[in-house]
Amino acid sequence: MVENRPVLTILRHLVLGLGVVIVLFPVWVAFVASTHPQAALMSGAAPLLPGDRLVENYSRLLASGMSQAGGTPVGLMLLNSFIMALLIATGKIAVSLVSAFAIVYFRFPFRMVAFWIIFLTLMLPVEVRILPTFEVIADLGMLNSYAGLTIPLVASATATFLFRQFYLTIPDELAEAARMDGAGPMRFFRDILLPLSRTNIAAIFVIMFLFGWNQYLWPLIVTTDESYTTIVMGIYRMVNVSDEQPQWHLVMATAMLALLPPVVVILVMQRLFVKGLVETEK
């Protein structure tokens, strides 16, 4: 829009500000709740101004966790979630980069069949195949391990599809020029395709990191050992304590902590992320 009228500008900012308030209000409430003692949240009216228990609540959580919910320190849960999300994101990117490379640049029998099978799995979320996958992982003895947490999730139809679409936009001549220059397929992949995919990798990394971080059902099923509890599982466990009032102040503090790493990842990758999603120029 080229129009520049002051009334419109004010209106625009009002609408945007309203949007920000709507989105941020729950986060604010959660933050405020995490700074109060338990009793303050039991009165029925949620406080809107921060309390005085910020340091106390958070340090208790990070060090020892909530005793009623198994007592796993939140710090460990964060670490578990981080490792899981990182492994899933890098695994997904590694696998899909290579499989997209195979589908686009190599002629082999049933190439399109392979592509369509991968494409079809887009429609099957983790939950649909959770029982057979659990059976396989259990038989392989991978329960209660990072491998069990991540390996079943590293195949990604979405990422494969996105990388395929990206590779298709790279002119064939580039591959041919590399061939004339004497670069073999893997050399071409490493020297040309990987550097060109940089922004796409960043964008997909962010999406897949969030996907990994937010996993709930799968970690819940494959881990029974407390030391593999992830943060998302942890929160739920804290809410569902038996025979007691839920300790909302600690739950909210945990939620705040769970928010942080994805936010940091997005902030760090933001520039590349946006570029990766909109880039058309090569």
Binding site: E173, A177, P195, R198
Partner: peptide
């Protein structure tokens, strides 16, 4: 025809 230079 399109030079096929490596853009990066």
């Amino acid at each position: 025809q399109n030079y096929a230079l490596y853009p990066h």
